[in-house]
């Protein structure tokens, strides 16, 4: 017998590829933004729509925040342009496209 799939309306959810979410597959809670304490897949307090409208920003220090949250933080004089988690100067990381995409779909 041969099975031909003609149409598949599936359901999936998207996640930010924060680099460590392959291990976190079991951990359903997901990570939260260190500034607003809202999950990455949620949106920062200023936004209404999650996803592309409220993207993440990756730092070289390996910390990840909602972009809006971080920019707001960096905009305050108290920030001294440092990462709020480790107080190192904030440097936005270059994103390696397509890292471990193959494992992502589990």
């Amino acid at each position: 017998m041969k099975v031909h799939v003609k149409h598949w309306s599936a359901v999936a959810q998207w996640r930010w590829n924060t680099g460590n979410n392959n291990d976190a597959a079991a951990d359903d809670e997901g990570d939260v933004c260190g500034i607003c304490r809202i999950p990455y897949e949620g949106c920062c307090p200023a936004c209404k729509m999650p996803g592309d409208d409220c993207p993440l920003i990756w730092g070289q220090c390996s910390h990840v925040f909602h972009m809006h949250c971080l920019l707001k933080w960096l905009g305050t004089p108290a920030s001294k342009q440092q990462c709020p988690m480790d107080r190192r100067p904030w440097v936005t990381a270059e994103r390696k496209v397509n890292n471990n995409v193959g494992n992502a779909a589990c």
Partner: peptide, 25 residues
């Protein structure tokens, strides 16, 4: 999907949805 949205990955809910099949016996 990940090629289209480099920052995102998808995770399936395999038990949801419907599938149209053609079975050749």
């Amino acid at each position: 999907f990940s090629a289209f949205k480099p920052d995102k990955v998808i995770r399936w809910h395999p038990h949801l949805g419907r599938i149209q099949l053609e079975l050749e016996l």
